[in-house]
Structure formats: structure tokens, C-alpha cells
Design a binder for these strands. Sequence first.
DNA 1: CTCCCGACTTGACACTGTCAACCCAGTATT
DNA 2: AATACTGGGTTGACAGTGTCAAGTCGGGAG
Lengths: 198, 198
Amino acid sequence: MAHDGTELTSRLIATALELLEAQSAEQLSIRQVAQRVGVSHQAPYVHFGDKRRFLAAVAGAGLEHAVTDAARRIAAVGLDPGARLHALVDAYLAFIDGQPHVHDLVYGPLVVMSDHPRLQAAAIRYWTILRETVAANQPSGVDEAEVLRRCATAWGMVYGLARLNAAGKIPPTVPADRTQLLHDAIEVMVDGWQRDSS
Amino acid sequence: MAHDGTELTSRLIATALELLEAQSAEQLSIRQVAQRVGVSHQAPYVHFGDKRRFLAAVAGAGLEHAVTDAARRIAAVGLDPGARLHALVDAYLAFIDGQPHVHDLVYGPLVVMSDHPRLQAAAIRYWTILRETVAANQPSGVDEAEVLRRCATAWGMVYGLARLNAAGKIPPTVPADRTQLLHDAIEVMVDGWQRDSS
DNA sequence: CTCCCGACTTGACACTGTCAACCCAGTATT
DNA sequence: AATACTGGGTTGACAGTGTCAAGTCGGGAG
């Protein structure tokens, strides 16, 4: 067979991400992606050794795309800190309901952050962007520790609300567009930040 | 065999909940709980027909326990609306890290809220408690729709932060106890509610 | 007494993750 | 130049999974 320039590992990962557009992470099987790539069912094990590590690598690649998209959106929106924060929220929402299965994989129990260096690196990169964006929305006199706490709170809120919504676990009695809901909540949170610098 | 007073269905559910104390929801298998109960591997199918529906029933039973515990905690704390809200948060935190696998099952992708009437009923009961508790913390002049929106926001924040924390996905650089973090965030949110009644 | 029906069992099928052994093209070593 | 080794890949097997199909059996209805 001629050398085709694509390493098997990246082809496996890319194929898995493709499949995750139509299937959930739980029903994705190693054998399926191996067959899709046209290789034996044991080939992935040579490179990843384990299903968990394979999924972690896939999650890493998926999160890389998401973080790149987020950075692009933030850069595109200009320099206003509030607008950048809202752009970050939009990016997260686009991630969670553009590729829900990838998001499930990254933040689900199947995978731990330290399972793969690529995943860990992407997570750190995402967190860095979040920290910078949140920090730019703080009044003067807020120390680093408080900024980190506010990052966690804001992220938790966005993550939680978006996920509950995507999973259909918010009762339909709750009115209004959920995207709007989240942006409003972020707005309130930013107002709170401006007022209180403890 | 003598009639022992416990229907098979409830024994299966109870056994599944037992197993979920030590295993994650993904690795729980129908055959395993059937064997544990001492019955053939097909017996559960007679009553539940499907793995998804069985898991939904288990999730329903688990959520029932959680909602009962939450109601008990709220009642135990007295009548102060703020204290009741914090008690509800504590109950949710106790649920999520006392029985993380059950929580994963209830709010994970394996199960949809409408999969089983028992699950649906428990979810509605939980939501009702949340709505009442949040409503008691509103200033006058807040309409029902806004209360529901605030419920969703608060619940999303608690859910998201607790889940990210339990899954080990919050960077260890973030300081302070996470329980404290959440109660502080709730406090800020309640303050915002008092100030703004739009 | 017979028929039926619902709870339960037995047996099979395709599919999964994973272990073990094998194969084979290069490359380094002697 | 011949040999050994190694890394990427294959084939085959095994236990365990969800689920379908057929059978068993006890007790109530006609």
C-alpha cells in the first residue's frame, strides 16, 4: 500500500469525530471506526491501547476545534470586554448544541481530563481564554483568586444551563428562548461583578 | 418458592440502586442485576421491555429518594426563605456527591425525562419544590414567568458547578471550598433578585 | 377437563472490548 | 551479507452485553 500521508492515529480520530456527528458517545465502538477506516479491529489498540484513552484522544481533538472556534469568535467581535464575554458564551452554546455528542464525551464520565495530553492541553487553553475574558470584565481591585472563583461560577452556570437545556431536562413551562436566558443571566452576573469586588 | 412480599420489579430496581453505589451507570448491566436478584437474564425484560426503560425506572426511584431528602432538609430548617434555599442547595450537593452514579443516570443522556412515569413524577415534584423555594425569595412584583426563568438559572448554576466539580473538570488552581463557592454564588444571585424585579 | 395467559426460563444471535499469538517489512547488528 | 529485532498490523479467540424467539409452567376461566 502506498504511503498516503495520513497517519493512522489521526485518521481514526477524525473518523470517530465524524461518527459522533450522528451517534452518541456511548454507542460509538472502536470496531466501528476501525472498519470505517478500513483497518482491522485491533489496529486502534496498537496506538491507543485502551478504549478510554482512545476516547480521550478523540475528546481532545474535539475540544481543540471548540477552543479554536471560541478564540476566533472572540477575536472577531473586537475589544469590548462585555462583547467578548458574550461571544465566548455564544461559542460555548454553539459547541454544546452543534456537536452535543462531542461535548458529552469531553465533559461526560467516560473520560477524565488527564487521560490524554492533547485533551489536557486543550482544556487548559480553553480555561485560559475564559480567565482572560472574565478578568477583562472585572473592576480594579479584584485579586486573582476571586477572578478564578468567578470564572468557575460563570462557567458552571453556562455549562449547567446549556446542558440541562440540551438534554431536555428543563420543563417546557419555563418561558423564553434559552439562549436569551443565558445571556441575561451573564449580564446580571457581570453587573454583580462591577458592584462587588470582594 | 414462598411468596416473599416483594414484587420482582421493585427488587430489580432496589438491586440496581445498590449496585450504582459502587459502579457507574454505563457499566451497569441488566444481566448483572438479574443474576444478583437470582433470576434469569430475561426476567427484567418481561417487566421493563427495554434497557432504557429499566434505567429510567431506576432513575425514577433514585430521584424519588433525592427529592424526599430535599423536602425533609427544607422542612427541618424552618421558615426563613433564604435558609430554605440554601438547604435545597445542600440537598442537591448531597445528592450529587452522595450518589454520583444515580445522579449521572438521572441527568445523563441514557435516559429521557419522559421515559418512565415514575421518573417524570419525581422530576416534577423536584421542580415544584424548587419553584416554591425560589418564589419565596422574590420581592413583590415578580411575575410567574420571571420566577420560572430564575429557577432555571439558579438550578443550572448549581447543577453545572456541582457536576463540573464532581467530575474533576474544574482546574485545581481555583481556590476555596466548592461548596462555599456555590453558596456564595447563590447569595449573590439572591441579592440580584432583590434588587431587580424585571 | 381443557384452554389460555402471563410470568419466567432457555437458547441463540450479533456485537462489544480486550488478550494472545502471529506476520511481515525495514533496520540495525554482527 | 546474513541475522535478529522491532513496531505496525492482522487473525482468532473469549467473556460479557442487549435483545429476539421459542419453550415451560402454574393457576384461573370457560
